[in-house]
Structure formats: C-alpha cells, structure tokens
Amino acid sequence: MAHKFAELGHPIQLAARQSKTLGAEKTNLQLRYGVPVTLHEFDALLTETHAQFLAMLPELPEIAVSIVGLMGSQEGSERDHLLASCVMRSNYEGPANILALLANRFEERGSGTLVGVSSVAGERGRATNYVYGSAKAGFTAFLSGLRNRLAKRGVHVVTVLPGYVATKMTEGINLPARLTAQPSEVAEGIVVAVKRKKDVIYVRPVWRLIMLIIRLIPEGLFKGIRM
C-alpha cells in the first residue's frame, strides 16, 4: 500500500505497533521512491491514546488508509468471550475510533480522503465467521455514515471490501485462486479509488456479484446453508 502511494510521490507516515521493527521498510521506501518516510507508534486497540497519536504526527496527512484487522478463529470466539471482544474491537472499535478523529480534523481543514479496509464478511453474518463479520459489518456501516456526513464538506470516504487476499492472515487456508487478490492488487485498487473518488470498491469485480447473490438469499433458506 505504502509502495503504491510512495511511487506517486506522496510522503509516507507508517503507523503500527512495534513501529521500530519497520526501520528496514522505511529505508526501502525512501530508497525506492525518494520520498520522506516517518514511523509512528500506534495501537488500534488503545483508543484512549489515539488523540495523542494524532497530535504527535508531524503533519496531518492528506490521505489516511486504515488497514486493521484480526480474524481470530470463529470457534475460539464462540468459547472465549475475551477473544470475541478482541476481534470485535480490532475490526470495529479501534479503526472506527481513529477514523472518527481523523474525520473531524479533515472536516475542519475542508479536505482529505479516508480509506477503510473492511470485508465482504460484513455483508451477511455466516455461521463460520460471524463474530469477525459482525464487527466488519459495523465498520462498513460506520464508513457509509461517515461518507454521508462528510460528502458536502470536501472529505471523501472509501470503503474497501477486498474479498480473499493472499496475506499472512489467510496463509494455510485453501482459497480459490480466481477469487483471491494479491496484496498489490488491493493497493492498486485503493489508489485508483482514491483518485476517482469511488465510494465502495470490491477489488476483484466478481465479488460484487457473489455478495449480491449472498445478500439476496432469503433468511429462511440461508439458515439451512452451511457456508
């Protein structure tokens, strides 16, 4: 993601936990694209620190991309309410909180783009993945509301529903190749969406169709299907 924006000449602020371990990535981005790169310690779950985090940034960014997520195992979440809560907070409360704070500052300034990476899992609750899915559903609704609120204030909000992506989170899961995007495809999709001010993007177009069908199945029928 950072590579695609850096390639276009944007200065980069990387925010993550253990941001010190990103030193090599920082050098890599600087060498490849000749743009300034700064590292910032950020924990999505420590929502009380978010305001402080923003205050510490050397500069309010023009574009902010939230890529935060925790899949957890559905079975684990069913048994362990602490894990379930962690999944819910990681996928909804944390990212929504930081974007809310950014949104206010962007609104004040009168410009900016917010990108939230949510998930197709939030389009309908499924037995195999509903804890994660419900949090993503909340995040998707939050982004939609935010976009609606800021539409006339010069701030644009992009919702990204990537479908399957070949990342560490999905490693070891046997995913169908045609439905699975590479991380660089997601990044490319986001760059285009930001440029063209798109609202909701699915990275591989086939997911729009799949999710349309899944949403249209009547609940009575849906509850009998294991998927």
């Binding site: 090599a24 990535e25 050098t27 890599n28 060498l31 490849r32």
Partner: peptide, 11 residues
C-alpha cells in the same frame, strides 16, 4: 520463491 524478500536496505 524469494520475491517477497525484496527490500532495498541501503545506498
């Protein structure tokens, strides 16, 4: 496949 180990580390 080594293509993910692809950082430039210094110049």
């Amino acid at each position: 496949d080594m293509r993910r180990l692809n950082r430039m580390l210094g110049f």
